[in-house]
Amino acid sequence: MIWVDTIVQGIMLGGLYALFATGLSLIFGIMRLVNLAHGDFMVLGAFAVLVGVESLGLGIIASAILAGAFMFVLGYALQHLLLNRTLGKDLLPPLLVTFGLSIIIQNGLLEGFSADTQRLKAGGFEEVSVQFGAISVGAMPILTFCSAVVVILLLNWLFYRTETGRAFRATSDDPVTAQLMGIDNNRIFSLAMALAMVVVAIAGLYLGARATFDPLIGPSRLIFAFEAVIIGGLGSLWGTLAGGVVLGLAQAIGAQVNPEWQTLAGHIVFLAVLIVKPRGLFPRTAG
């Protein structure tokens, strides 16, 4: 029974990691940018929600919406003013600049909020659990998982059903031709980053609501996100969800064996996938 429980917990945890990973996957998919500050942006998102709740006295939902809007604008501006200039054949500029951003965000948050651990309070909702036979599952993990599914559904709808989505796909497939067809790549990239940052804000919300956070935990969350993306295989958001679930399961099972092995187990599964299937478990088929 304990193993069934572990597996359910692992899958739910996977939902959280999928949320972490979706923004990363989105940005990489559209503009081939690996954002080393991704984890720190999630933490920034969590702090933004925190400011809404604690300083402005808003409800958590209203704060989250406000944080989403803030991150949208921030993402657009960052991409437009800074990150677009780093894109190109050379690998180093985007890596270094996002690494720089990572350091800047971490220390900016330290300066503003100190190194204290924080937590987003969801008014007792985090205590609620749902009983499935002998297993009880927290309402928050279920909500996280459902949110991940909804975010991915919405993104897929956006990609495949709307004009903007078509522009995203066109730019991702062939930026030059897209530009010929009147698409402004810079604007599309900025829009994509803005959109990804909304997802990041959602990830930040759950990051803060499900566990404590502090200004310096971004990099480790980035690693989880990255692992989920790679395990799932590039190119599909559903693959990312699957990757998140595999990672969540690995960590839950590892933790069940020995609590100190949680993260390690995730890393090891990641490395194993890398050795056996370097293109991930569910790569988008070429064609």
């Binding site: 780093t86 720089g100 350091i103 800047i104």
Partner: peptide, 17 residues
Amino acid sequence: ATWYLILLGAVASAVML
């Protein structure tokens, strides 16, 4: 210390660009 790191990140990014 924190401002030093922020400055460092910014300077390195600027040099790169």
